Simulated scan of single mutants.
Amino acid sequence: MSVTTLQPSGVSLIRFGDYGRDIAAAVRAGFTSHRVVYAIATLAYVWGIIECSLVGLPVNYGLVSLVSGTSLLFLGVLIGAWLAFDLVRLWRAGYDGRPSIALLHRLQTDILAPTRIANALHAFLANGIFFVGFIAIKKSIPLAVPFSWDQTLMETDKLIHGGTLPHDWLMPLVGSPAALFFINVSYNLWFVVLLFCFFWFGYAKTDSRLRQRYLIAYLSLWLLGTCVLGTVFSSAGPCFYGFTVAGVNPYADLLATLKAANDIYPIWAVPTQETLWQSHLAGHGEVEGVSAMPSLHVATSVLFILQARAWGKRWAVWFTGPFALLILMGSVVLGWHYAVDGYAGAVIALLCWWMAGKLAPAEEKAELSSRPS
């Protein structure tokens, strides 16, 4: 989002009719430039509707509405903060015009520029269509393909980690209540980073090739990860291992440690897992969809690294690299995933990023600057 310096004079507003026509033209053009994104979204939507119909589940739009509402709130806060920053900047610069006119000009030409509105509309519309189907597919997985891979994934974890489960290596290092609380906070921060990255590219003023590549990769990894591989390797995860595999639960001590830590610090994974399993048993609920393999938390975190490297901002790479490692660690010690789920997620992110590079528009446009342009 580029910064435009407002001069003391010469600020004029765009006529409403012209502004509206510019928005309409940008929206029309966007349907063509976002055709790959819409194709992925439509595929997921149709797949989800058909699968829910076949397994006898209703399509739930509740979570999509919640995410959309959160996104709109986030956008409103972002625009408000942006305008407040501009107002302070004008005051400090000694601006001698009418601040209201200057800020309206900024809204028309930058914050709510026609191309930015069009890009946001297409990104968020496609995202909404996609996740209606995605959620439908995810919650249908146990009915379409009952959980059967948990024991195999547990044994694979043991095999590639020298005969020891990964959490047994990690818990002596991060098993204190305070450390688990920090890890859970970081794990939940993933959603904020996810929103930030999606807004950064979705709300960009310029529909660059990097923007298209990110959006295509972002939707593709959810589709390939959970919808395809999550169905093929249907599994519930370590936190639900005792419900899906008979015999001794190798994660019992881990879950007991998490519950004990939750008595001291809030470990949100504990009540969330309980709610998720109850929703799974009931067939509906506030949080729906049990699927462990692969880890989309890790997959999207690796995608953050890839887009940061392509963007060329060193600070973004320095943040996203350690953050991805922290998410991988959190997915294991919080009982959400087997370590191999995370490794698979990383591979999927690399594959989808490469594929998106092939599918994104070939023409090079202005790339994103230090702020989304």
Score class of each variant (00 low, 15 high):
Trp91Gly: 10
Gly94His: 09
Ala26Gly: 04
Met293Leu: 15
Gln273His: 10
Leu210Arg: 10
Ile117Leu: 05
Ile141Val: 07
Leu170Asn: 12
Leu170Gln: 07
Arg309Trp: 12
Ile327Ala: 02
Phe243Ser: 06
Leu75Arg: 15
Arg106Tyr: 14
Leu104Glu: 10
Tyr338Cys: 05
Ile183Arg: 00
Leu306Asp: 02
Arg21Leu: 02
Val298Trp: 01
Thr164Lys: 12
Val193Pro: 00
Leu189Tyr: 12
Asn127Thr: 15
Phe319Asn: 05
His122Val: 11
Pro271Arg: 06
Leu43Phe: 14
Ile216Ala: 12
Pro372Met: 13
Trp91Phe: 08
Leu325Asp: 01
Cys197Lys: 14
Ile327Ser: 03
Pro8Tyr: 12
Ala310His: 08
Ala260Val: 13
Arg21Pro: 01
Lys158Ala: 08
Leu121Met: 15
Gly247Ser: 04
Gly30Arg: 12
Cys227Thr: 04
Ile183Pro: 12
Phe130Ile: 11
Glu274Gln: 03
Ala316Gly: 01
Glu288Ala: 08
Val46Tyr: 15
Leu104Lys: 07
Leu57Ser: 01
Val46Ile: 08
Gly342Lys: 00
Arg15Ser: 09
Glu367Trp: 13
Thr156Val: 14
Ala136Thr: 07
Asp253Cys: 10
Phe201Gln: 05
Leu165Val: 14
Gly17Cys: 09
Leu351Trp: 08
Leu219Glu: 06
Val287Met: 09
Gln212Ser: 09
Lys205Gly: 08
Phe191Ser: 06
Gly162Arg: 05
Trp149Gln: 11
Ile267Asn: 00
Pro142Asn: 09
Asn188Val: 11
Pro142Asp: 07
Leu195Met: 15
Gly97Phe: 15
Ala344Asp: 07
Leu194Tyr: 07
His161Lys: 00
Arg309Met: 10
Glu363Thr: 08
Leu107Gly: 00
Leu359Asn: 08
Tyr214Ser: 10
Ala136Asn: 03
His161Tyr: 04
Ala324Ile: 12
Leu350Ser: 02
Val132Glu: 14
Phe124Asp: 02
Ala29Glu: 10
Ala179Asn: 02
Trp222Lys: 03
Arg116Lys: 11
Val145Arg: 04
Tyr19Phe: 05
Arg116Trp: 07
His280Pro: 01
Pro372Lys: 11
Arg371Glu: 14
Pro146Tyr: 05
Thr272Val: 06
Ala126Trp: 00
Tyr218Arg: 01
Leu78Val: 07
Met154Ile: 13
Leu258Gln: 01
Val192Arg: 08
Thr257Asp: 14
Asn262Pro: 00
Val340Cys: 10
Arg209Met: 05
Gly48Met: 04
Ala252Gln: 14
Gly357Glu: 00
Leu359Lys: 04
Leu195Asn: 14
Asp22Arg: 12
Trp315Cys: 10
Ser68Pro: 13
Val67Asp: 03
Leu255Glu: 12
Pro250Trp: 00
Ala41Lys: 14
Ala366His: 08
Gln278His: 09
Ile305Asp: 05
Pro146Gln: 09
Tyr343Ser: 01
Val232Thr: 06
Leu368Ser: 00
Val67Met: 01
Ala339Leu: 03
Leu326Arg: 03
Ala356Arg: 04
Gly330Asp: 03
Val333Pro: 05
Pro99Asp: 05
Val270Asn: 00
Pro8Ser: 02
Phe243Asp: 14
Leu258Pro: 02
Leu72Ile: 14
Leu306Glu: 01
Pro372Asn: 13
Gly202Trp: 05
Gln108Leu: 09
Arg213Pro: 00
Ala346Leu: 02
Phe199Gly: 15
Val46Phe: 15
Ala339Ser: 07
Asn184Ile: 09
Ser279Val: 03
Ala360Ile: 00
